Simulated scan of single mutants.
Amino acid sequence: MRIRLTPEQESSLQVYVEGGRFASVEAAARQLIDVGLMELDAETDDLAWAKPLVDEAREAVARGEVVTLEDHRAHIAKLLSTLEK
């Protein structure tokens, strides 16, 4: 399959190639198409895959398996203090 870019698109991509961001205009186009496809997939994702994870988290909360924000911050502060020594 061949895709024709507009002169403006090709010029814009060439700037990124010259700046070292992409190896070639073709590589840039492929990567940008991949990103666009991921965004389309994200728009149509119904998040059904997340339901078991949410259910598991709710069950953990119901069992009292939680950490308060204050306890978490204290734990992180303690860890950081050991790194500073």
Rank of each mutant, 00 (worst) to 15 (best):
I3S: 02
I3L: 10
L5G: 13
L5H: 12
L5K: 10
T6D: 08
P7T: 00
Q9E: 08
S12P: 04
S12E: 12
L13I: 06
V15P: 05
Y16K: 13
G19A: 09
G20E: 03
F22H: 04
F22Y: 15
A23D: 06
E26A: 12
A28Y: 02
L32Q: 03
L32R: 00
L32E: 06
I33Y: 03
D34Y: 01
D34R: 02
D34N: 00
V35P: 02
G36C: 05
G36R: 04
L40W: 14
A42D: 06
E43L: 15
T44Y: 04
D45K: 13
A48T: 07
A48H: 03
V54Q: 10
D55N: 12
D55E: 11
D55C: 04
E56L: 12
A57R: 14
A57I: 05
A60W: 01
G64Y: 00
E65P: 11
E65G: 06
V66K: 08
L69G: 13
D71N: 14
D71M: 08
H72A: 10
H72M: 04
H72P: 04
A74H: 12
I76M: 14
A77K: 12
A77W: 01
A77H: 07
A77Y: 05
K78N: 01
L79W: 05
L80F: 04
L80M: 10
S81Q: 11
S81L: 09
L83I: 05
L83S: 10
E84R: 11
